[in-house]
Amino acid sequence: MTDLSHLVQPGRTIAVRVTPRAARNSVTLDGEVVRVCVTTVPENGKANAEVVKHLAKALDIAKTRLVLLRGATGRDKLFRID
């Protein structure tokens, strides 16, 4: 898993591209976009919960500091760090 702790600044927004039903969980940085692959299916918010969990771990912050601004039902998401 990629260490993204250098991106942590309060108020910063992070663009995320999600791949559900992936072969394995991973977090990578592709230019300005963070790519998160999760093995979970996108039903009832399960994939979003996994994305938050893995993104918070890669950023080395608490899950509660991540706020989903856009993309609750899509693959492209925008998070803010509180």
Rank of each mutant, 00 (worst) to 15 (best):
A15L: 05
G74Y: 01
R65W: 07
L59C: 11
P42N: 15
R75W: 00
K53T: 12
L29Y: 09
L7C: 04
R21C: 12
V51Y: 02
G71D: 08
R12E: 11
V16P: 05
K53R: 15
V38N: 07
Q9G: 00
G45M: 10
A72S: 12
E50R: 11
T40S: 13
A15Q: 13
P20H: 12
R21N: 13
A58R: 06
L66V: 05
T64L: 05
T13Y: 00
P10W: 02
V34K: 07
I14C: 02
G45R: 09
A58Q: 07
R70H: 15
G74A: 12
K77W: 02
K57G: 06
G71P: 10
A56R: 06
A49F: 00
R24C: 09
G31Y: 10
L69C: 08
T13P: 03
V52H: 00
L59E: 03
K77D: 09
I14K: 03
L55A: 05
T64V: 13
R24K: 14
R35P: 04
D82V: 11
G11P: 00
D82R: 08
T28I: 15
C37F: 02
A23V: 13
A23S: 14
T28R: 15
P42Y: 10
S26Y: 12
P10R: 12
E43Q: 14
L68T: 09
A47W: 04
R70C: 03
V38C: 07
L68A: 12
E43Y: 12
A72T: 09
K77T: 06
K53G: 00
K77V: 06
S26F: 15
M1K: 08
L59R: 02
G71S: 03
A47Y: 03
R21E: 12
L69T: 04
V18M: 10
K57C: 00
A58D: 07
R70T: 09
R17H: 10
D82T: 12
A22D: 06
A23Y: 04
L7H: 02
V27I: 10
L7W: 02
G31V: 11
G71K: 08
K46P: 01
K77G: 01
R21H: 10
N44V: 09
A62F: 01
L59I: 06
L55M: 08
P42L: 07
K46Y: 03
H6R: 04
L68E: 08
E32Q: 14
